[in-house]
Design a protein around this nucleic acid. Sequence first.
RNA 1: GGGUGAUUAGCUCAGUGGUAGAGCGCUUCGUUCACAUCGAAGAUGUCGGGAGUUCGAAUCUCUCAUCACCCA
Length: 954
Amino acid sequence: MAMEKTFDPQFAEPRLYQAWEQAGAFRAGANRSRDETFTIMIPPPNVTGALHVGHAFNNTLQDILIRWHRMRGFDTLWQPGQDHAGIATQLQVEKMLAAQGAPGRRELGREKFLEKVWEWKGKYGDTIIDQLKRLGASCDWSRNAFTMAGAPGDPRTGHENSPNFHDAVIRVFVNMYEKGLITRGKRLVNWDPHFETAISDLEVENREVDGHMWHFKYPLADGETYEYVERDEDGNVTLRETRDYISIATTRPETMLGDGAVAVHPDDARYAPIVGKLCEIPVGPKEFRRLIPIITDPYPDPDFGSGAVKITGAHDFNDYQVARRGHIPMYRLMDTSAHMRSDGAPYAEAAARAQEIANGADFTEAEVDTLNLVPDDLRGLDRYEARERVVRQITEEGLAVMTTDADGNAVPLVENKPIMQPFGDRSGVVIEPMLTDQWFVDTAQIVGPALEAVRSGRVKIMPESGEKVFYHWLENIEPWCISRQLWWGHQIPVWYDAEGNEYCAASEEAAREKAGGKPLTRDPDVLDTWFSSGLWPFGTLGWPQDTPEMRRYFPTDVLITGQDILFFWVARMMMMSQAVLGEDPFHTVYLHQLVRDEKGQKMSKTKGNVIDPLEIVDEFGADALRFTMAQMAAIGGVLKLSTDRIKGYRNFGTKLWNAARFAEMNGALGSDGTLPAATAPANKWIIGEVARLRESVDEALTALRFNDAANALYAFTWGKLCDWYLEFSKPLLASDDKAAETRATMAWAIDQTLTMLHPIMPFITEEIWGLAGARGNMLIHQDWPEYTTDQLLDAEADREMNWVISLIEAIRSARAQMHVPAGLKIPVILQELDEAGHSALAENEALIRRLARIESITEQAELPKGCITVAVPGGSFALPLAEIIDVDAEKARLSKALDKLAKEIRGLAGRVNNPKFVASAPAEVVAETRANLALREEEEARLREALARLEALD
RNA sequence: GGGUGAUUAGCUCAGUGGUAGAGCGCUUCGUUCACAUCGAAGAUGUCGGGAGUUCGAAUCUCUCAUCACCCA
């Protein structure tokens, strides 16, 4: 049956994928023929996720490595699964409920809401898995895992691989708690007012926005004054005035209400006279104005603003540090939705107590947290509205620093300046630093082994620059806030009694036992999603149970993931694996960049430059997309995806398809796998080229240089197999004595090409493989070749065929430049030729005549008038084209060739004649340079002769 | 401000000390029995600037410029 003219991926890909799945081709250990294992853990996509180009890239690379190892006979496992993605999923379900007009989260209550989430997960949670299948991902889906599997409320039983994932999470928490690695405390955290939860540093996106800097006067207590002096760099006085205030610049006036002090740099001479005195916060009811101390701290930058900084420990990270150093009270001003607090005692009462503290009274953190210092008229307001009111009140009172505008009017000094503002990466709202009780992992205690793993080389990060980034972050690691005020997640296994004592245990019963039977309430918070993702490499293998999979496949081998989650995930997996198991989770980390559009811009919905990988698969097929991904994957490279490129690789697939079609027409598709006994130089040559390809593909994939592997395959398939070998084969297939061996060689070469292309282009290669008739196995389980060039490369055939190619190219080039009609067969005169050339010509005359479109080759030393000269290594040929030759064009052609040669000869001769080069360069480089020079000089001599002959014509 | 990287053909990018490369695009020619999703031939480079190390530098070092990303 004749093959179709082109491969139809839309039709064939789903059929082929189904065939693989039905055959169990992806199962862990499938096609295993040796003892070594090879394991990759998929970076679990969010259960809410839809496949984007980043996933497509990331998973293509993983699939290439997996398929390659599986074919090589490793016991291979590609562990798939999904992440429960706390915030994203909770948000998604809330949105759905709202859209349905159903009762919301709070109305439902925790338990009912979680039921809805599980329901949602059951319905929509597999979207991304189906999308990964369209890419050709050969994960062992029978082992699909989930980071919330086995949590209370999980309606599924038995059909998921990791029913114990929840147990693993709880076990690790309890273990780390008992070791003192997890503690609870009041800390300043990034608070997301939309989701009303704490989030980690990594979930905060700092963006530059237009902001304002206000300047206000904090009057000194009791009307005190001081001499304020400013000097220039040389110490000359530029300003001297008597002041009864200290000037403060702030971008967040609403937080003034919670100020605990004003700080200046200890070396700042301007404020030295007033350090230790009190000043007044210029806002709030006049009769209850609070006085706060002026302190010194190294944090304020004397050159920035006025050099004096207000300290609001509960709402700014820098201030928090200053307040802790100086034992300054931290007054929380906002509630969980970032509205000004409206709880607690009236302002007058709170302010009076705060004043006692400022005057030196003892206080506790807990007491301070109960004090609501928001004036009664501002309570309950949104933080931005409160800001406006505060600014207005201060300005009306005349306590804003004034300046003059363009018209000479006095106006408040407000600088417009870009400021960096923190946003929640999920909610997009401005993050509020908030002083709250949270759970923390004391990462400083567990970071050591992870750092050591990379420093010692046990774990290799690629590209190497990733290691520096890794060190930098881990060496300066901050405590990791792991509690989230959400419902969807692993609830923290800690219970409290009425006195607030903590009981951490794997179950409520165990906790109650510890508490001696006292009534307990459970901490409502859940764990950061990344806490459970950190256990991915072993939680998916059945840990904490002692499973065969855990023993066999852990530690895993290569982790392929985006650079952006090096800290989120990679570093934490390394820390947690070491903390829990005392082992590294993998030995190699391959980091890649974000996939961008063809101009290098981030893809974003607002820019409208998003490329949907599934649309690409629809239009060009998964193989074309995969090949493009592999081809882009230079280590550390920027990833720019353009549809033109994808189209090019779709064309590559068609080229391969047509080569197979040609083979099939000639009865040369599908070999029995035995190495053909070739006698024709062309056949010997292609066998050697296949061996070269095998070596370069393996070398490239071993080094994770996917682009090198893809390019080697492309260059071989198109540039060697199709451009030359199939053309060489045509006269051979028509011959009596070489036809059989050529069919065998072609079948073998194409099978080898399909095999080696399969990890990158699994669909089209499997399809062609299957078209060749009865095979013992599918290509996905074909054994990967191991032959070497030492075994298969015939050096003589290699030299010979390269000479043949260069002769054909030289003749074609001369013909084209002389505008010889492409269809015209011309005679060729052999002018002179060395022995090797004679032999190559004799063996391959049929190929040369066909490909260079030559009518006859005759040998004669004396040339007729009007010849074009073609020089090749070892000799020269002439094309007698007196009737169509353009002498000037030929002269120009020769001159140009001579110029180029002359330049090369100059360079080579310069080196050879330099005694220092001969003395210092390696012998083989010197020899090579000499040989090269000799060749060039020989060619130059021939061309000069030819040019002289032409000039004699005139 | 700190860190990391980039700068090579018109475009997108490979290239870790030994004759500057690929794909796309461009020009000319071509319906040769696998392929027009194709074939043949061709043009295009002070390898960002400057300095240094070296027999030899796109590659190593320093410096300047521009850009990108990450963290403040």
